[in-house]
Simulated scan of single mutants.
Amino acid sequence: MKRLGGVIGVVALSLAGLTACGGSNDSSSGSGASSAPAASRAAGGEAKLATADVGGLGKVVVDGNGRTVYVFDKDTSGKSNCEGGCLAKWPAVTAGDGTPQLDGIDASLVSTVTRSDGSKQLAIGGLPLYLFASDAKAGDANGQAVGGTWWAVGADGKKITTQPSSSGNGNGY
Rank of each mutant, 00 (worst) to 15 (best):
E83G: 10
A152D: 04
D135A: 10
A136K: 15
A95N: 01
A16Q: 00
K2S: 14
G32M: 04
T112A: 02
I124R: 04
T161S: 10
G22T: 03
L13V: 14
G148D: 09
V54T: 05
G84F: 14
G84Y: 08
L13C: 15
G56K: 11
K79T: 14
T68F: 06
G44F: 00
G96N: 02
K120F: 07
L122R: 01
T99V: 06
I160S: 06
G30E: 06
G172A: 13
G45S: 03
G78D: 08
T94F: 00
A138I: 13
G17H: 08
S80V: 10
N25P: 01
A136Y: 15
V93H: 07
V62N: 02
S28E: 07
T68G: 06
V69W: 04
A38T: 06
L4E: 09
G98Y: 00
A88E: 15
L49M: 03
S40D: 10
A92N: 07
A138M: 09
P128V: 05
D73S: 14
L102F: 05
D75C: 06
S119K: 05
A42I: 00
S119Y: 04
A36D: 12
G5C: 15
G172P: 01
A123Y: 04
G139S: 14
L18N: 00
L49H: 01
R67S: 12
G6A: 15
G147E: 09
G6V: 15
Q144G: 13
L131C: 11
G44L: 10
T114S: 11
S24P: 01
G55K: 13
D53L: 11
G9D: 13
K48T: 08
A12M: 12
T19P: 00
V93T: 01
T68A: 11
M1T: 13
L129C: 09
F72Q: 03
S111E: 01
S14H: 06
D97S: 05
V11K: 04
G45N: 03
G5L: 15
W151L: 05
G98E: 00
G84M: 11
T149A: 12
T161H: 01
D103L: 03
T19A: 12
W90K: 11
T162A: 13
T112G: 01
S28G: 11
M1C: 14
D117F: 06
A155R: 03
L127W: 07
S80M: 05
D156M: 07
G104Y: 07
A95S: 02
V60E: 03
M1S: 15
S40N: 09
M1F: 14
P100T: 03
D26G: 15
N171L: 13
A20F: 03
S134V: 12
S166T: 14
T68D: 05
A133H: 15
A152Q: 05
A138E: 12
S119P: 05
A155I: 00
